[in-house]
Computed example of a mutant assay.
Amino acid sequence: MGDVYARLAELGITIPPVVPPVAAYVPAVRTGSHVYVSGQLPMVDGALAATGLVGAEVAPERAKELARTCAINVLAAVEALAGLGSVVRVVKIVGFVASAPGFTGQPGVVNGASELFGEVFGEAGQHARSAVGVSALPLNAPVEVEAILELS
């Protein structure tokens, strides 16, 4: 996998501070060799980068970018808890897409997160995944991503 911090620098990605929870939970929990990351919204500098339903107020291409932001926030939660250097592999992600009626492009939206993990971790970033359409997400976010990662 190489040095994850060097790879992040090559990609021009700065890991932000962990996003504070918006309710009664913690951003990530480690048990044994796994870390479970709570659903991360597309927060940038303490605010949602966009709001609304994908396929209505938010274009699918923009939602894919927002899923990438969610994935960066997943990395921030892992960094704060255990350090990204301890990641062995991304095991599974679940992407939730707030979908307008009739929108069925959830897999393409969640690719924004999947592709980010592949860019950062290479083969170790390949993961199992679910992409789920929902009627609404917290704070009217268009997308949310949660993850399970294996640590050394």
Rank of each mutant, 00 (worst) to 15 (best):
L116F: 03
S135F: 04
V109F: 03
V110N: 01
A131C: 13
G118E: 14
V145T: 08
E146G: 14
A128I: 03
Q126T: 10
V132A: 04
E144K: 11
V109G: 03
V88Y: 08
N111D: 14
F121R: 00
S152L: 05
A98E: 08
V88S: 13
E119L: 15
P107H: 01
G112C: 06
S86R: 15
L139H: 13
P142K: 09
L149Q: 00
V90W: 04
L84M: 14
H127V: 01
P101N: 07
S86W: 00
L84V: 12
V109C: 05
P107Q: 00
V91W: 02
L139A: 15
V97R: 01
G125D: 07
G108K: 01
A124V: 03
S114D: 08
F117C: 11
I93N: 02
L151T: 04
S99P: 00
A147T: 07
Q106N: 07
E115K: 07
G102N: 09
V94C: 02
S114H: 03
N111W: 06
L149E: 01
L149F: 13
L151C: 03
P142H: 11
A100K: 08
V97G: 04
E150A: 12
V97F: 02
E115A: 14
I93E: 04
R89Q: 13
F96R: 14
I148E: 12
L139S: 13
A131H: 10
F121C: 05
S86H: 04
V88D: 13
E150T: 01
G95I: 08
F117P: 03
A113I: 09
F117Y: 13
F117V: 11
V132R: 06
G122H: 06
T104C: 03
I93H: 03
G122N: 08
L149Y: 00
A82N: 01
V87I: 14
Q106S: 13
R89H: 03
F121V: 09
K92T: 12
L116D: 06
V88N: 04
L139Y: 09
L151Q: 01
E119A: 15
G108E: 14
V88A: 13
E123N: 05
F96G: 01
L139F: 11
A147R: 02
P101G: 09
Q106G: 07
G112A: 06
G108Q: 12
V143N: 07
E123C: 01
N111K: 05
L84C: 06
F121Y: 15
V120K: 05
G133Y: 09
E150D: 04
N140F: 12
A98N: 13
